[in-house]
């Protein structure tokens, strides 16, 4: 929400403009993800998949997983325990 979502949106937009299509998003320090954060994630997931890429999530807490499941988008994402495993999955 607010500045956190705005900051992530800017990062995504700049990265995609630079041609990046593979993203590892570490959520370990994200206490709560709301509908605006979910909207951002699925929008950029669609954008990266259209370019042949993907977004992998790392260490979302149980509440983030619960929220993603509640709105039916959990299965759109692959989830990993650490950044390296997520990055390796692109190979």
């Amino acid at each position: 929400m607010g500045t956190a979502v705005d900051g992530l949106r800017q990062t995504f937009e700049e990265s995609i403009a630079n041609g990046d299509i593979y993203f590892v998003l570490n959520l370990a320090e994200v206490v709560m993800i709301d509908s605006s954060g979910i909207g951002l994630l699925v929008r950029f997931l669609a954008s990266t998949k259209q370019r042949g890429g993907n977004i992998k999530l790392v260490q979302p807490n149980k509440f983030a997983v619960q929220t993603l499941r509640l709105v039916g988008v959990l299965n759109l994402f692959e989830i990993f325990d650490d950044d390296d495993a997520a990055a390796d999955s692109f190979n």
């Binding site: 709301d34 509908s35 979910i38 909207g39 951002l40 699925v42 929008r43 997931l45 669609a46 929220t67 509640l70 709105v71 039916g72 988008v73 759109l76």
Partner: peptide, 18 residues
């Protein structure tokens, strides 16, 4: 309903549902 297939990648419309 945000869980409908055609709405899964929409970037808004989940607040009241949640």
């Amino acid at each position: 309903d945000p869980k409908q297939r055609e709405n899964l990648y929409v970037d808004h419309g989940r607040g009241v549902y949640l």
